[in-house]
Design a protein around this nucleic acid. Sequence first.
DNA 1: AATTTACGTCAGCCTTGTTGACATTCCAAG
DNA 2: CTTGGAATGTCAACAAGGCTGACGTAAATT
Lengths: 164, 164
Amino acid sequence: MAEAPGGENLLYLTDEQLRKGIEAMFFAYRGFTADPDRILETMDYGRAHHRAVHFIHRSPGTTVSNLLAILGVTKQSLNRVLRTLIDEGQVRVEKGKVDARERHLYLTAKGAELERSLSDAQRARMRAAYRAAGPQAVQGFRQVLEAMMDPEMRVQYSRLKDGT
Amino acid sequence: MAEAPGGENLLYLTDEQLRKGIEAMFFAYRGFTADPDRILETMDYGRAHHRAVHFIHRSPGTTVSNLLAILGVTKQSLNRVLRTLIDEGQVRVEKGKVDARERHLYLTAKGAELERSLSDAQRARMRAAYRAAGPQAVQGFRQVLEAMMDPEMRVQYSRLKDGT
DNA sequence: AATTTACGTCAGCCTTGTTGACATTCCAAG
DNA sequence: CTTGGAATGTCAACAAGGCTGACGTAAATT
């Protein structure tokens, strides 16, 4: 932990180290999405559906606007995905009671089951990676990822993290 | 480091912690690609072009097959991207001397410049994140990412990492 | 009453992935 | 020398999932 006073060890900031980090992100993200992708494929859904389902599960009753902000896509793009999920009974829509313009989104029982199968697969890999790397490494992992986010996304992340 | 014997602290493996890790990956990957994406947009290239340029830079003289294996796409998909890069003078092709079926790929001066501008942008963010998190965290970051890869991808990653 | 907000939808476009088919070139084995 | 298979290129067609722009409607706000 302690470095020579007045001069930390900065070898970890070389271009070479950074390139390794970049490639690690690239390859790891592939692994990260591989398992849910396989499941989604069998039911004619894509990653976009997964993301919607994930965040609706995470924040039940969230509005369309909210989801747009989190996912960072256009309403047309989200709507396409959302429509299929609703039509196929994965997501339930509820008109807002306080503000009737808003549509609140919930997973149905069927949708919750889908979410579980997807997140089980993804968590299994994440768990294996966590276990292999150990708690210390996991803490570092989270720190670096958080620092890599755009500030607005960091807000979204923290909001979810703290359970607001 | 040392835990109670026979029972490590496994709190970091809870579903809640794993969910945070999953969302961290999601939001961080967005940041990870945001800067190069902005540059690419201005020159009518996409992420696919970036990936090709990156790995050709990383392994000059690599073959099409090699690139296919690393990128994990079909040759038709890669070829489309590769052709525009060649046509626009970013990439130079050389017939193999030992095996003339192979096409060895190199960046031109122009392509190298493109690569530099893209990786400068991406490295800047990575460097900031690394610096903010510190060397200890970076080590953990890399450990978790590596553990998250598919085994075949880990091979590709290590091959590059060690400079084979 | 007028404006703004939240949402939905139609139409069209682009990138980047896919499959399938086919041609060429060339190495290597029989 | 011939032949099979490997490496590559290319054509066509399609799909997912981004995007913009335009328009409509209902509800809240001013």
